[in-house]
Simulated scan of single mutants.
Amino acid sequence: MSKLIEQDLHRVMLRLPKDVIELMKRHGLMLGGGFIREIVAGLPPNDIDLLGPTVDRLKLAATELYHSRNKQARVLETKNAITHVAPPRTTVQFITRWNFDDPAMLMKSFDFTVCQAVVYWVPCEGSDAGGYWDSLVSDRFYADLASRRLTYTSPNRHEDAGGSMLRMRKFLGRGYHIDADSLAGIMARMTVKMTDHSNFDSIRNDEEGQAQVLRGLLREVDPLLVIDGIEPVDVEHEGLPS
């Protein structure tokens, strides 16, 4: 594991909204993935993904952000995340599907090395309650980002089988490329899921039947709605305290 170079960590912190920075410090939340990658690459980020130790902690932070911004946000909640959409502000996502209190475990959970980046607050012991910002990135993060290469990590996490395939398509559309080994890993995850299908024995030699199952796996994450693998469904503000 490596760290962001000091200048990049500074740039990331400068681009984060102040209220998000305070939430991260107060609730022990970590910034991961796409926001960091895009800032390092000099591109505008699509969203801010925050992860934390428990769903309750993330929901509390999401509620605090909603009220601190005078309820000026469209709130989308799914099995994966609570998403705050309030243009022109950057979308903020509180990822609830996976919980982490260890930045190293979070970093390793991302499916591509160009996503394996985490920024977090380290509190110092003592009465002054100080601390500092730190980071972790994959050893291949900078090299793969510079060459726009997708290296699949075969993460050990519960996820929709078609999620990495759809994220791969998104990256390819942005000018990234992928080698045969990483492509095979993504295909293998879908193949394993397909063979678990209750009707697989009947479609073992049926190409169209298998294609239908694969289409179903891909549609678990709607490519028209996907935001870095998170499928938002608008529930307005249900579940948020008034």
Rank of each mutant, 00 (worst) to 15 (best):
E6D: 13
A211H: 07
S109T: 04
A86M: 14
S109L: 02
T83Q: 05
C115Y: 11
G185N: 06
D49N: 11
Q7M: 09
G28L: 08
M30Q: 12
E220L: 11
Q116Y: 04
I82N: 00
G163C: 08
D111S: 03
N99V: 15
D8M: 06
I36G: 01
G33R: 09
D234M: 07
E64Y: 05
S242F: 15
L172E: 00
E159H: 11
T191E: 15
T96C: 03
E208I: 14
D234H: 12
L183K: 10
N99M: 10
Q93T: 09
Y142D: 13
L106C: 10
P103I: 04
R167D: 00
S242M: 15
F35Q: 02
V40M: 01
D101K: 13
V122I: 08
G239P: 04
G28Q: 10
D206W: 04
T83P: 01
P123I: 11
L23P: 07
M105S: 14
D102W: 15
L106H: 08
P223F: 03
I82V: 10
L14V: 15
S198M: 14
K18L: 15
M165R: 09
V118M: 05
R11S: 13
R97E: 10
T195Y: 05
S138M: 07
G52C: 05
S154K: 12
E238L: 15
L224R: 13
H10P: 06
I203L: 04
A86F: 09
A62F: 03
H84F: 12
S182M: 07
D101V: 08
R26P: 07
D181P: 01
S198K: 14
I39M: 00
H177F: 04
V55A: 02
G28H: 09
A86C: 08
D196M: 12
G239S: 09
R57N: 10
T191V: 13
S147Y: 12
Y142V: 13
V12G: 02
N46W: 13
M190F: 04
T78N: 08
F35P: 01
A104H: 12
V226T: 15
D19W: 02
R89Q: 11
G42V: 03
V137L: 05
P103W: 01
G216D: 09
I39Y: 00
N80T: 14
I186V: 13
K59W: 09
V122E: 11
L145R: 06
D19P: 08
A73I: 03
V226F: 04
N70P: 03
L145E: 03
G126N: 05
Q93G: 04
G130H: 06
I230K: 00
V85P: 00
E38R: 13
D134E: 07
V119N: 02
V233R: 12
H197W: 06
G126T: 05
K3G: 02
K3P: 02
Q7S: 14
L166E: 05
S127K: 14
H197V: 02
T96R: 10
L217Y: 06
C124K: 15
G185C: 04
H237F: 06
P45A: 01
S242V: 15
F100G: 00
V55Y: 06
L76C: 10
E231F: 08
L23G: 07
R149F: 11
T63E: 10
D128T: 15
T63G: 03
E125H: 12
R157M: 09
R204Q: 12
L58H: 08
P232V: 01
D222G: 02
